[in-house]
Design a protein around this nucleic acid. Structure first.
Lengths: 209, 209
DNA sequence: AACAAATAAGTAAAATTATATCTATAAAAA
DNA sequence: TTTTTATAGATATAATTTTACTTATTTGTT
């Protein structure tokens, strides 16, 4: 097993969300075929993905829904808490701070940073907005593992460096730029521009899916 | 040529953003190797991607930066305007509405919709917030092609249906659910949960990239 | 109790995508 | 003008991912 495919990993949250949306009768079971139909995926792919997380279904029965949810949540690390800081309290940054849903995924935003003096000292939903100078120290002291970058493109790389200096091991980057980081630090880009490109390209096609 | 790889399509905006970040001396040229080094990609991959959009470089010279930018912008449809509506004026929806950067990508948000009566009638940066009832009519009248979904999971499918009823041909879905749509309608999911899964999984690994 | 039907799991094949190698071309230098 | 050198473009190889197929298991039915 060891290494799991990246695409599989990206599908797992979709399975989890679907399973959670089901009316939860205890001891209910669901077949791989049913999941596949609901999510418009291949039946075999679903089985393969689920077997990768260590779940096993029973023939003629399927997978016990509650077990599967627990398996997935454990595997995805939603049960273990990850501490994060947000850098860049602009439109997007504020929205990410205010959105409470990340807690369901094990993500706790414990602080925010901005270069704008007008924002520093504020509290947003209980999280302090601090000066950029304090970033590395704060991250080390608070044992922060994840940095969320919601700053303009030009500021992204320096902010990323500051996060890494603070010991952050994973960066979630909302800026449309490529960031360089040492090995062992994961840069995950939330690429809205790429999404838009796909939309825009689709609209230019006469008739396609 | 005909069909272009999805992964290629997703990389194109990255190239474009990088090229635009360059200090623009007129008639400046850049080699595929230089782009590859800056974005930490394979040199051959860059050439292959760029040739897919119809750009040709010259040996020992590379690609003319300005031409390349224009090519990419045209190919990605950033020069042709796409009219969009936003559904769901919550934290995220507001941030998307307030963020002005989408205009650079050819996306014009011309209206917003919400089920909350307290919001209806407001103007946000010049865009009206309307009732859900008016959605299909508005989309048809205003010739809207793109719908942006920033609603809770449970509301996503009905809202998506309403958008499609209004003639929308592409949906940008921020809700963590799979949406069903007829052929010819593109559903593009902005999958934050998947991104978080990758981050969380990485942090669980002892030492990996 | 035996059989049939349905399903999961494991294995193999196909398609897609990325990487490497090679060739030809064009500009710079001698 | 000739030679050298770096680069684009094309071709081929490799790796990854998806799909198809086969096998074995388990439950429900006769």
């Amino acid at each position: 097993m060891g290494s799991i495919s990246k695409h599989t990993l990206q599908r797992l949250p979709t399975y989890l969300a679907y399973l959670k949306s089901l009316p939860c009768a205890d001891n209910a079971c669901i077949s791989a075929a049913a999941i596949a139909a609901a999510l418009e995926l291949g039946e075999v792919q679903v089985r393969k993905d689920l077997s990768a997380v260590g779940s096993a279904g029973k023939p003629r029965i399927g997978y016990p829904v509650n077990d599967l949810i627990q398996h997935l949540e454990y595997f995805l690390g939603y049960s273990t808490r990850n501490r994060a800081v947000l850098v860049g309290v602009g439109n997007l940054g504020l929205a990410l701070l205010s959105y409470g849903g990340f807690a369901d995924y094990g993500l706790d935003i414990v602080g925010a940073f901005d270069s704008n003096p007008a924002l520093i000292g504020l509290q947003i939903d209980g999280r302090p907005v601090l000066s950029m100078d304090e970033l590395p120290t704060f991250c080390q002291r608070e044992n922060v593992q994840i940095g969320i970058l919601a700053v303009p493109s030009a500021a992204a790389q320096p902010c990323c460096d500051a996060l890494i200096a603070g010991g952050v091991r994973a960066v979630w980057n909302f800026a449309p730029v490529h960031l360089k980081a040492p090995d062992g630090v994961l840069i995950q880009r939330e690429n809205m521009a790429s999404s838009l490109a796909l939309l825009s390209y689709h609209l230019k096609q006469p008739e396609r899916n």
